[in-house]
Design a protein around this nucleic acid. Sequence first.
DNA 1: AAGTGCTTCAACCGCCATACT
DNA 2: CAGTATGGCGGTTGAAGCACT
Length: 255
Amino acid sequence: MERSSGTVRKGAWSREEDTLLQRCILKFGEGNWHLVPERAGKCRKSCRLRWLNYLSPNIKRGIFSPDEIDLLIRLHNLLGNRWSLIAGRLPGRTANDVKNYWNTHQKKKKKQQQQQQEEEEEEEEPAPPVDHHNQISDCETKISFKPIKPKPRALSSVNRSLLRTSSLNINADEDDDAAGEQNTAPVKEIRETPLALLTQAAVFGEDGSYGLDDLLLSGKHDDGGSGEGDDDHFDPSHHDFLFDEHPWMKSLHLE
DNA sequence: AAGTGCTTCAACCGCCATACT
DNA sequence: CAGTATGGCGGTTGAAGCACT
């Protein structure tokens, strides 16, 4: 598949390589990655990644603002680990940035949660008397830290194929257009529309494990797909924001 | 000041979907 | 229609920098 040129270099990008790549992109345009590698001295994928994640003028660098973090959390709740989609809604941020931020964020939270759980377990250890009030509060904390599993992190190959077939059916319900038109719709387009996201939820729900209602209503118990408890500060009203206020959701006329 | 552990993030890898021949 | 090339994505890794002892 990948054409392996002998001159392709691995590792960190040097200043010279960066300028070379920038020149290539100026010359050939963004997207013509097949024209770049030999000239930039790196493989096609590296060139693309370097441009998209670092050299592109649209990139916003630096720490995430509270607003961005808030939006990121909400989007992750909704979309799961679909970093490119999330990044698409965070202007100037790349999928890699978002992913990196989330991973470190998650690590910290996980650690904190683990510590908290251990502390709780230590406290409980000396034969806890039956106390209904404590039972409830304990239950609540556990629920808030233990997400419902399993959840798809992203579309597995199986789910993708399911989506490709099922989404068309669901589209048929959603839209009274001719089936032929739906069948010719590019899969990429299907995958990246809000409808597709809902479709995914519907598809996952077919086995009873992950329904659209879960997505919409599970609130703080739903971490949105990474399978790791992330959001102990979750505010259920965030869903209201996403589904009522967001332009693309408005466009769906969802109730 | 030196050593060690931790965190961050750029880069790579493998896989999949689509386009092209 | 099959095979190949290309673009794109998410997961993972490892080097560099930082904080702490």
